[in-house]
Amino acid sequence: MKFKKLLLSSLLAATLLQAESGEALFNIHCSSCHSEVIGVNESGGKLVNIYEAPYIKDLITHLKSQTKNKTEFTSFIKDYINLPSKRKSLYGKKAIKEFGLMPSLSGVLSDKESTAVANYLYDDYGKNNNKNKTTVTKKDTTKTSLFKQNCASCHADAIGVDEDGGKLVNIYEAPYVNDVVKKLKAETTSKEEFISFIKDYINMPSKRKSLYGKKAIKEFGLMPSLSGLLTDKESTELAIDLYENY
């Protein structure tokens, strides 16, 4: 019985330690934008990964070159993730225009947790990544490229931020793709029905079919038809990609 209690205590301690580790916190709060590939840019014959925010390795390298020591580095990270602003941005107006201003993590992470994330980025990021490293190839990204080429500029690329009410919210030119997918999944009963709706709507969009009603049409306008731009096979691949990956 004593051994069992000791084992449970050890497991609990290990779980808490993992939950508070910088790596775990980064994976929960940061990786989806800063390290997960959402597509590829094939211009110039070279495949370049596309992210929803500046790639974390580039960001770390850039910030280390702009700071004198670890203390200054971690101080910047902690300050920026709690109070992001255009003035503080490492990448200037171009990045803000491309990615939007990141949402604040104030109230999401404690001071101890934000310190853990900053320390992890400075000391350990990338050391264990090779084991799980995947290579993005042209074959792997066909469907995602279709979304990037035909839909992302309106449905995924932030064009600004709304700071009303003290909360930073990205602004898009159309309903955000993750929200669209979530809403459509809630209103369809199967993958086939989801795919059928997407294919029909992108080819023949109409106010009557809109998931968001008159308010969204008034705010964003009716999306242009992709009829003639995508083959039936491509529109199917695009719909499958949305269902499975967003």
Rank of each mutant, 00 (worst) to 15 (best):
G22Y: 01
E23Y: 07
L25F: 01
L25D: 00
F26L: 00
F26P: 00
N27E: 12
N27D: 09
I28Y: 12
S31M: 07
S31W: 03
S32Y: 14
C33W: 09
H34G: 00
S35L: 03
S35M: 02
E36W: 08
E36T: 12
V37P: 03
V37A: 09
V37C: 08
I38N: 08
I38W: 06
V40H: 12
V40A: 15
N41Q: 11
E42R: 13
G44K: 10
G44W: 08
G45T: 07
K46D: 11
K46Y: 13
K46E: 15
L47K: 11
L47M: 13
L47S: 14
L47W: 14
L47T: 13
N49I: 13
N49Q: 14
Y51D: 10
Y51W: 12
Y51R: 06
E52V: 14
P54L: 06
P54F: 06
P54D: 05
Y55T: 01
I56G: 00
I56N: 03
D58M: 11
D58A: 12
D58F: 08
D58R: 11
I60E: 01
I60M: 00
T61K: 14
H62P: 07
K64L: 01
K64D: 02
S65K: 13
S65C: 09
Q66A: 14
Q66Y: 10
T67W: 08
T67Q: 08
K68P: 00
K68D: 13
N69G: 05
N69S: 14
T71N: 14
T71S: 15
T71C: 10
T71V: 13
E72K: 11
E72S: 13
E72L: 06
E72G: 10
E72P: 07
E72Q: 15
F73W: 06
F73A: 06
T74G: 04
T74S: 14
T74A: 09
T74M: 12
S75W: 02
F76H: 09
I77Q: 03
I77H: 02
I77E: 03
I77C: 05
K78W: 06
K78Q: 11
K78P: 01
D79T: 10
D79E: 12
D79C: 03
Y80I: 00
Y80M: 02
Y80T: 01
I81T: 03
N82D: 05
L83P: 00
P84K: 02
P84H: 02
S85H: 04
S85E: 03
S85T: 07
S85G: 02
K86F: 08
R87T: 14
K88N: 04
S89R: 03
L90V: 04
L90F: 03
G92P: 08
G92C: 07
K93C: 06
K93N: 14
A95V: 03
A95W: 06
I96E: 09
K97C: 05
E98R: 11
F99K: 06
F99V: 04
G100F: 02
G100I: 00
G100T: 07
G100E: 04
G100C: 04
G100S: 05
L101A: 02
M102A: 10
